[in-house]
Design a protein around this nucleic acid. Structure first.
Lengths: 150, 150
DNA sequence: CTTGATGCAAATGGTTTGCATGTTT
DNA sequence: AAACATGCAAACCATTTGCATCAAG
């Protein structure tokens, strides 16, 4: 089949176009940060790790720029910040909302579809009049692998 | 009815007894921190707020001691640390596990019984082999009051 | 008296900011 | 050329730590 040569590049371009059409500028730092996030296996990266990867390819990008870029992209609605715990702030693309099952043992994270909380959302509405719009909720526990291991 | 004079004092004593029986020392700082937490309306306090209240009654207690005390009590299993967001770390008593509905509008928190997540827990087990033990999960949304206001 | 907790002050470290310079449009 | 992003270095600020002193058991 022809015409799907670089899926990552395509995704990146789509994001950059979104910025452009909002009148925002495309810079090396913004491109690099998005690129690394797209390339990351599960697309979740702690700031430190992200900065390391960005700087591996673009040593001129200063850490403060990474922070500013992250803020900018979050503000622009392209990224989302998830708090996996104290000092475990991580960013990923703001695609559909989803949740996280985080293993206490290995620290790994399983992505869960947004629907896993649908029941709870309904419950909160009828019971408390609370209109929940949970994004990136983190649920702790032990993953299958760590479970058998112990 | 006689004999229930100071419920708070009684609760405090129970906690202190727990420490004592573990061979831990009872100090002014520990007593003061627990006292403030017991006195707080919803028993959730950010560190800064907690420290302010503790020092209002015991000016000699240094901020670093508050930190050390919080760590100690958490280690001892008497307190739990909840992360309501970036820079919104708060502590409360480790009674039964429960969860939090946090309003984006007013920042207030509703306490939810642990059971609201039972369905999810079951789901994660059967679906992913993930043994969830969620403590103090935070679900964002809009509370009833803020809902009508807008 | 012994062990461990505290006050204080100094260090730490992640994040933010001011400003001059370089880029994007 | 104008507006904005970046590099750099310095400022910030919550949290931590070393050490001499004090208090609990």
């Amino acid at each position: 089949m022809a015409g799907h040569a670089h899926p990552r590049a395509t995704e990146l371009d789509a994001l950059l176009d979104r910025l452009r059409s909002n009148g925002e500028r495309i810079t090396t730092a913004r491109r690099a940060v998005l690129q690394e996030l797209l390339d990351a296996p599960d697309q979740h990266l702690a700031i430190e790790e992200l900065a390391t990867r960005v700087q591996a390819r673009n040593p001129e990008i200063h850490l403060s720029t990474v922070y500013r870029t992250l803020d900018f992209l979050t503000e622009a609605g392209i990224l989302v910040n998830v708090h996996l715990g104290p000092d475990r702030s991580s960013y990923h693309l703001a695609t559909e909302s989803h949740h996280h099952a985080m293993c206490d043992g290995c620290g790994r994270t399983i992505e869960l579809p947004a629907e896993v909380l649908d029941g709870v959302v309904r419950h909160l509405d009828t019971e408390f009049g609370f209109e929940a719009h949970p994004h990136h909720v983190v649920i702790e526990g032990t993953c299958a692998a760590c479970r058998t291991r112990s």
